[in-house]
Design a protein around this nucleic acid. Structure first.
Length: 309
DNA sequence: AGTGACTCCTGCCCGC
DNA sequence: TGCGGGCAGGAGTCAC
């Protein structure tokens, strides 16, 4: 389940292996993967062919590669990995994975160094097809003149790793909401990049329950929470991200190993590590909520008196 | 405008 | 063995 750290691992891989390269051919094998490209798969392929890929950028779970040399009507190739999307850099002719949906043939960059003078194939592989690729015009960020981002990403809030992330502003917006804390954390217009795994992990680290009403959160608690989000994401990034199976991989097809460091997600029925360190016993429980699961420690994350599910 | 339900998808796993 | 149903869930869309 790619969240911010996993998408950032992919972004770094693309910066290393794809940036600067011209696209010489595009093949859309499954039109559902270009669903968000309104003009259709043929238009997607036409407009991408001949473009040169610039340095990839990211906000939250959205990843985009600006197309260089496109003049005033600047465009970007936007990617969202959804639940199971992968962007892989392969040698042309490598065996094709089962769920290959789109492929781009990349030529060597002009200033290619040793070993980088060969063609590559950028592959979008996606089992569940919740993700996709599309082209989108770049627009100026409303809160930062000169900063460009795809029009369809403009409504997404800054993520906690963004240098312009404003925890105080997010705190104020949280206090105005009338919803549960985890719902708010998963709302990408409020703060982006957080999915189910890192929401549960950050709530555990901050000792807050997922059903805590957002309007009761004080400044200390919200800064503790966002500090926890940054911390857990930074640790995950340093370990190459989280993956439970072969679904989430970097551009070279390798898995991260942060799953070994998870404290609550996927640990229902197992002892809470923080409680154990304090010589107490508590078991992680799993609730069904919002059509997804929430894992927490009932002892150090007690259900609030006025819970808002 | 904020909120939450619904929908899109495939593969795996469970029970009968 | 086979099949139906539940589960995994990010985010756009829509109704209220």
């Amino acid at each position: 389940m790619p969240e911010l750290p996993e998408v950032e691992v992919v972004r770094r891989g693309l910066e290393r292996w794809a940036a600067g390269r011209p696209v010489s051919a595009v093949e859309v094998l499954d039109a559902r993967s270009t669903r968000r490209h309104d003009a259709g798969p043929a238009d997607f392929a036409d407009r991408l062919t001949g473009a040169r890929l610039a340095v990839p950028e990211r906000r939250g779970k959205y990843l985009w590669i600006p197309l260089a040399d496109r003049g005033p009507d600047a465009q970007a190739l936007v990617a969202h990995l959804g639940m199971s999307g992968q962007l892989l850099v392969n040698e042309p002719g490598d065996p094709e994975p089962r769920h290959l949906r789109i492929r781009l043939l990349l030529e060597p960059a002009e200033e290619a160094g040793d070993g980088e003078d060969r063609s590559r194939e950028l592959r979008f592989v996606d089992q569940r097809i919740f993700g996709g690729l599309f082209l989108d015009p770049l627009v100026e960020a409303s809160d930062r003149p000169g900063q460009l981002l795809p029009a369809s990403v403009a409504h997404i809030g800054r993520d906690p790793m963004d240098p312009d992330f404003d925890p105080e502003a997010v705190h104020r917006r949280l206090r105005l909401r009338r919803t549960g804390l985890k719902r708010a954390m998963l709302d990408q217009t409020l703060v982006s990049g957080i999915g189910n795994i890192y929401a549960d992990e950050a709530l555990w680290r901050a000792r807050l329950h997922y059903a805590r009403p957002t309007e009761t959160l004080n400044r200390t608690e919200s800064s503790r929470l966002f500090e926890a989000v940054r911390e857990v994401m930074a640790e995950a990034l340093s370990q190459g991200g989280t993956s439970f199976d072969s679904l989430y991989v970097n551009v070279n097809g390798d898995s991260g190993y942060f799953d070994r460091s998870l404290d609550v997600y996927g640990r229902a029925g197992q002892p809470c590590r923080r409680c154990a360190r304090q010589g107490r016993e508590s078991t992680i429980v799993r609730d069904r909520f919002m059509n997804r699961s929430s894992a927490y420690c009932p002892r150090c994350q007690p259900v609030p008196r006025r819970a808002r599910w």
